[in-house]
Amino acid sequence: MLWTNIFAGFGGQGVLLIGQLLAYAGMYEGKNVSWLPSYGPEMRGGTANCSVVVSDDPIASPCINMANCVIAMNRPSLDKFEQNVLPGGKLFINSSIIDKKATRTDIDVYYVPCNEIADKLNNPKVGNMAMLGAYLEATKAVDSKSVLDALLYKLGEKKAHLIPLNEQAIELGKESVRDQIK
């Protein structure tokens, strides 16, 4: 099993975090993982992305050019990374704020209304978790239980009360793509 992923969006959408949660979850499940953020003169509201690899075998390159999965949380990310999905790979689009459809026909595309799901839960911050839920449903790369364990580790006991909300967001994200899975 080898999942190479690019998570992309604008700063503040939490793409680096969901990438990290996937890496932690993979590690908890005994897999090899790597998480590499794009770094540079970044700023809030600017673009952000990270490459995450989850693999049964030792990971060769942590730097991903062509990925099994691309997660695009905003339009510039879709424009930039649609071409980086391997043929037969998966592309996840935050359909709440990306008004464009994918142009590739050799890949599986999933439209996830992240912001609407977050609105439904009255918390604009959990749109990323909805996307992660969609990703988990379509790939089964890791178990969502491991993701929640990772989230608890990141949040710490003081913020543990936020777990149910995030769990709901993951669940609604999963639901949103269930009928899109071939």
């Binding site: 990290q20 890496a23 590690m27 090899n32 993982v33 790597s34 998480w35 590499l36 953020p37 770094y39 990971i59 942590p62 730097c63």
Partner: peptide, 10 residues
């Protein structure tokens, strides 16, 4: 290099 510094691995 910067990648080793910025990258997270187990």
């Amino acid at each position: 290099d910067g990648i080793i510094g910025q990258m997270m691995e187990p």
